[in-house]
């Protein structure tokens, strides 16, 4: 107990902020999976993204934080909400909760957890040795630095991703295109 208190005493304001944010993140992330109503689930997911953006800001990655909010919370989750509003899901609709799906989700979730735990345990040893205050560059997350990296070291993946987006867009246009004999709604 005293150890616990001492741990809190040593924390900087940033540390407290980190703890609060982490608690909020976990809370809302658990909310995503436990919420009965899909709308609540989506809203909890948005809250999670917010908390993640908060973490980015704590890491001095303001650009990532802003882009995370714009792209994920501001656009993609709006579309999620948009579709779910159209779906009219009822609470008594238990179709998707047969034993088979429950089993499958338990297996998949368990595997994911095991995988994550092994990764963290393997990484844990490295992180403590590699990471130190001297090697951390506070400018890593800033726009200029990020832009420089994207257009020099990572130009190929960057361009590939843009091609991927282009392919996705062309596909969407093709799906949405009306063909000659189609009904006009």
């Amino acid at each position: 107990m005293t150890e616990f208190l001492n741990f809190f005493k040593t924390l900087t304001p940033t540390g407290y902020l980190f703890l609060v944010l982490t608690a909020l993140t976990l809370f809302s992330a658990i909310g995503v999976v436990t919420a009965r109503n899909p709308i609540y689930s989506v809203l909890a997911l948005i809250a999670t993204f917010f908390c993640l953006s908060g973490h980015y800001i704590l890491l001095n990655a303001q650009f990532l934080a802003a882009v995370n909010i714009i792209v994920y919370a501001g656009a993609i989750m709006v579309l999620f909400l948009f579709t779910i509003m159209f779906l009219n899901l009822r609470r008594e609709d238990e179709e998707s909760k047969t034993n088979l799906t429950k089993m499958a989700s338990v297996v998949v979730g368990g595997l994911l957890m095991v995988m994550l735990i092994t990764i963290f345990r393997a990484k844990n040893a490295q992180v403590t040795t590699v990471s130190s205050n001297t090697s951390f560059n506070p400018n890593t997350g800033l726009v200029e630095h990020l832009g420089g990296l994207l257009y020099s070291d990572y130009i190929l993946p960057f361009e590939l991703v843009s091609v991927l987006f282009l392919v996705a867009m062309v596909g969407a246009v093709m799906l949405g295109k009306r063909e000659a004999g189609d009904r006009h709604f």
């Binding site: 802003a66 909010i69 714009i70 919370a73 501001g74 709006v78 909400l81 948009f82 509003m85 726009v143």
Partner: peptide, 21 residues
């Protein structure tokens, strides 16, 4: 902020949640 434009852009993109919710 050195990302002022993005900040406003992000907040504006959240504005629609009030209406949707």
């Amino acid at each position: 902020l050195n990302i002022g434009v993005l900040y406003i852009f992000g907040v504006v993109s959240l504005g629609v949640y009030g209406v949707m919710v």
